[in-house]
């Protein structure tokens, strides 16, 4: 059942999930990520309250839900960027609950961010090289002895250049990452994440702020990940995209998982329509609300810029408004 290099095509893959009942917390045939009783509270507000969820290996799963549903918080908790109040979760059978984010990443679960984190004053190639794991030269003592890591550095560079040309960033390799356009940064971030050879890629709103011309190529890259046998979990607002590429959809509202199923089924599900069109509209209704949302996004960006360190005094900078 597990995915290997000669993975079957997408429709067959979807069949893997054909027998899974479309109910919240449904068991999957080969789950890579399993979470139980995960809660995260901020003061009196419960941002995340997930009883049970499983993510199938080797498919693309979308995590959707209206603003404030707790998607990004759930994402942050799973990847170790935020601390859960309760709960346990396992990745490939081993518990990663409460592990620091870098250990989660080392285990093979690598994420990207809603607000792209290009390392601006590093060149594109250096950004890529940074992504590689198990680098001998990252030890402070060996760093002083270049002959110990030079060979590895060369193979890393080779891999980085392959990925850069696949993501059509090879002509930018010697530019500062800060000089890239918004869409190029998204591509760079995804390529950089692939440098660590992950088994599961977590994408937080990969389409946010991307120029429509780039959307198709980004979608293609996400599908390629599946073709290479990786598991993808992504948070997204754009329903068309969800419909287009996901094999399975999980819906969150007010911190809970309210529905699960294949894209078509979920979109017809009255609970989902309720969640979206009930009290919470995804699209702003009034101008005031739009302004409010705009301001929230702005303040998020500001928090992001002014507080890049992980400090309890501010909201974790990975936090989005979802």
């Amino acid at each position: 059942m597990s995915a290997d290099a000669t993975s079957p095509s997408a429709p067959i893959r979807a069949q893997v999930l054909a027998d899974v009942p479309p109910v919240p917390g449904a068991p999957k045939p080969d789950p890579i990520l399993v979470a139980d009783n995960v809660t995260r509270r901020f003061g009196g507000l419960t941002a995340v309250d997930v009883e049970h969820v499983e993510v199938q290996r080797g498919v693309i799963t979308a995590l959707i839900g209206p603003n404030g549903a707790g998607k990004t918080t759930f994402f942050n908790v799973l990847t170790g960027f935020d601390q859960a109040d309760t709960g346990s979760w396992t990745f490939e059978g081993a518990s990663v609950a409460g592990k620091p984010s870098y250990k989660v990443a080392q285990a093979g679960m690598v994420r990207t961010f809603q607000l792209t984190k290009a390392l601006s004053r590093l060149r594109v190639l250096e950004n890529m090289r940074l992504g590689a794991t198990g680098q001998r030269g990252e030890s402070v003592w060996r760093a002083l002895l270049p002959f110990l890591w030079r060979d590895q550095e060369e193979s890393i560079t080779e891999r980085a250049e392959q990925l850069l040309s696949r993501f059509k960033l090879d002509h930018m390799r010697d530019e500062f990452a800060g000089a890239l356009s918004g869409g190029q940064r998204k591509l760079l971030e995804m390529a950089r994440a692939l440098m660590s050879e992950p088994t599961m890629v977590m994408l937080d709103e990969p389409m946010a702020g991307v120029n429509p011309a780039l959307t198709q190529s980004l979608l293609g890259h996400v599908k390629d990940l599946r073709a290479e046998g990786m598991t993808v979990l992504f948070v997204e607002h754009d329903m068309d995209m969800v419909h287009d590429i996901s094999d399975w959809v999980i819906v969150m509202a007010q911190g809970k998982i309210v529905a699960e199923g294949p894209p078509e089924a979920v979109m017809a599900n009255p609970d989902v329509i309720d969640a979206y069109l009930g009290a919470h509209h995804d699209a702003p209704v009034t101008e005031a609300e739009e302004q409010q949302q705009l301001a929230e996004i702005e303040s998020d960006i500001e928090a992001e810029l002014s507080a890049p360190d992980e400090s309890p005094a501010t909201e974790p900078s990975t936090g989005g408004s979802s």
């Binding site: 901020f42 707790g70 942050n76 935020d82 005094a313």
Partner: peptide
């Protein structure tokens, strides 16, 4: 308690 005695923690989402 970097937010101070009267400060409040901000929340995500």
């Amino acid at each position: 308690r970097p937010q101070g005695i009267l400060g409040r923690r901000e929340r995500v989402g």
